[in-house]
């Protein structure tokens, strides 16, 4: 298993390099010019093209694309993601500060998603075509098709503005100390918005997996042993039906991170997703690259975690 893990990590390196090349190309070819922000029109007209060239040089944008890329790559291999164009700080320090916030938000979102999806999926499968099946299936269908920004704004409208129960934005009100209830109140709405898609998908997976499992021969065997229906379902059936869900968990990591971009922007949540969006709009190339590389690494790690979890929950799977 250790050997397999190492092999997978080594295999991921070329993949990450290719992703970085593509990302670098796309953001540099995208319309917009970061130098525009730094150009003072009055100075530009007075000092002429030298002034603009100087700014370009200062940002390192005067060199050809491939040279810039290799410079960037060389620095990254030494652990240096460069400096943000606009915030006079290193990309690393910006991201390190924001990453835990995104991770916490994603975990809570996934937790909410699973806590709802697993029991609901089981109920749908066991009481197939019942009123509950229809209700949950409809919720799941809506959850999959709701646009995140609309859903987020609606929740803010109802629970923050109309009812005044929960804050509209941010991560905390109390900046001096960690107050659990303060944090909890802030995380509820963004976590629900971020978890909605995963909840809907997991509910469908759970329902399907459970339907598949309960008609297996070993479930009949379990009943013929005299086990109660509760043990048959919760032990024998659920343990098998959870296999695809656990595997899905690894794959949901990148989905959560990209979903976080919109959710964090709506709720002004200080995470890497919001930073990514801001960086893209302002053409802050180093920050965009750093951000996207985090997502790429998370994706690779996520699929590795998915594979490893698969072997943990299913004894039939062995990695050499």
């Amino acid at each position: 298993m250790l050997k397999y893990t190492l092999k997978r990590i080594l295999q991921a390196i070329p993949l990450l390099i290719i992703i970085s090349i593509l990302t670098y190309l796309i953001i540099n070819l995208a319309p917009g010019d970061p130098t525009a922000f730094f150009i003072n029109p009055e100075k530009a007209s007075r000092l002429g093209p030298d002034y603009v060239a100087n700014i370009k040089h200062h940002l390192g944008l005067d060199q050809p694309l491939h040279i810039r890329y290799f410079k960037w790559l060389g620095n990254v291999l030494r652990g240096d993601f460069g400096e943000s164009f606009f915030e006079q700080r290193s990309v690393m320090s910006i991201l390190w500060e924001a990453l835990p916030n995104t991770i916490i938000l994603s975990l809570v979102a996934e937790l909410i998603a699973l806590i709802v999806a697993i029991p609901a999926g089981i109920i749908c499968a066991l009481k197939r075509n019942s009123i509950w099946d229809y209700i949950f299936s409809t919720i799941s269908f809506i959850g999959m098709s709701l646009p995140t920004f609309w859903f987020g704004l609606m929740l803010i409208l109802v629970f923050s503005l109309k009812l005044g129960w929960l804050p509209t934005a941010g991560m905390r009100d109390n900046f001096d100390a960690f107050v659990f209830t303060d944090r909890l109140r802030h995380i509820i709405l963004p976590a629900i918005v971020l978890g909605m898609g995963g909840m809907a998908a997991n509910m469908r997976y759970m329902r399907g997996a459970m339907l598949e499992v309960i008609r297996q021969d070993y479930i009949r065997t379990a009943r013929s042993k005299g086990l109660s229906e509760k043990v048959v379902i919760v032990k024998h059936a659920l343990r098998n039906a959870l296999i695809p869900i656990v595997t899905m968990f690894g794959f949901s990591i990148p989905a959560l991170f990209s979903g976080a971009a919109i959710t964090e922007t709506i709720f002004a949540w200080p995470g890497v997703g919001r930073i990514a969006i801001e960086a893209v709009f302002s053409n802050d190339y180093p920050l965009v690259m750093g951000n996207f590389m985090i997502i790429a690494v998370m994706t690779v790690v996520g699929s590795l975690v998915a594979d490893l979890l698969y072997a943990v929950v299913d004894p039939r799977i062995k990695y050499e």
């Binding site: 021969d217 070993y218 009949r220 065997t221 042993k225 024998h236 343990r239 098998n240 004894p315 039939r316």
Partner: peptide, 16 residues
């Protein structure tokens, strides 16, 4: 009263 079935390949729970 206990029972054994036709399909030994699938009658045991694979995860236990």
């Amino acid at each position: 009263i206990s029972m054994i079935f036709q399909e030994p390949m699938t009658s045991l729970n694979p995860v236990f």
